[in-house]
Design a binder for these strands. Structure first.
Lengths: 94, 94
DNA sequence: CAATGTTACGATACACGTAATCATA
DNA sequence: TATGATTACGTGTATCGTAACATTG
C-alpha cells in the first residue's frame, strides 16, 4: 500500500530530475531513492522516469503522477493544519 | 512525519466510533490503533476523540480532521489511478 | 575517468500481534 | 463481570546507510 513517504521521495526526484540532488534535498542517501521509485513504478505498473545513466525526463505518466502527488501531499498538510485550528483541547498527557 | 497509514486508521476509528470495530474493518488488532491515534493527537497537539472507557464522540477538531483525512486518502487513490491512465509503457521488467 | 545511478547487504527502527492490566456499563 | 480500551513487551519486516559495482558523458 502506497504511502506519503513514497510520494514525497518521488516529488523530490521528479522535480530535481536527479537522484543525487533529490537525496540532498531529502537529507538522505541516493540508493533508497532508487528502490522507492522502482517500488512505485512496480505498484503503478507504469514507467515514470526515463533513465539512461542520468535521468532523461519524466514520462507522460510521470508528469501526471507528479501533479497528483503534489496535490496529495498538500492535502495531507492541509489536514494536519486544519484540525488544530478548530480548537478544542490539548490531548491528555496521561 | 504523518503517513497515509495513520490517516486510514483514524478514518476507520472515527467512522466506527469504536476501536474494536475499526480493528475488525482494518483486519488488525485493537492495540496498535490506540497507539496510532495517540501518535496523531500528539503530532497535531489536539485531542481528536473524547474517550471514557468506550469512545464517546469526535471533538470538533476530530470532525474536521476526519473530513480532511478522507479527502487526502481519496486524492492519494486518484494519484495512483491517474498515472497509468496517461499510458506510456510498462516498467522495465528485466 | 569523473559523476551518476544501481545492486547488495547489514543494522536499526517501527508497526504489528499477544498477553496482561485497567476501566465502566 | 463482561466488554472494550490501554499499557507492556517481544518479533518480524522495511527503511535506511555503507560499500561495491555498473554505466555513460
Amino acid at each position: 500500500m502506497i504511502e506519503l513517504r513514497q510520494f514525497r521521495q518521488f516529488i523530490a526526484v521528479a522535480e530535481e530530475l536527479s537522484f543525487r540532488r533529490a537525496a540532498d534535498r531529502l537529507h538522505m542517501a541516493q540508493p533508497p531513492l532508487t528502490v522507492t521509485i522502482k517500488q512505485i513504478e512496480e505498484e503503478l505498473g507504469t514507467l515514470l522516469i526515463e533513465r539512461t545513466n542520468r535521468i532523461a525526463r519524466l514520462t507522460p505518466a510521470g508528469r501526471v503522477f507528479l501533479e497528483e502527488c503534489k496535490r496529495t501531499v498538500m492535502q495531507a498538510e492541509r489536514a494536519v493544519l486544519a484540525a488544530p485550528f478548530s480548537r478544542h483541547a490539548a490531548p491528555a498527557r496521561d
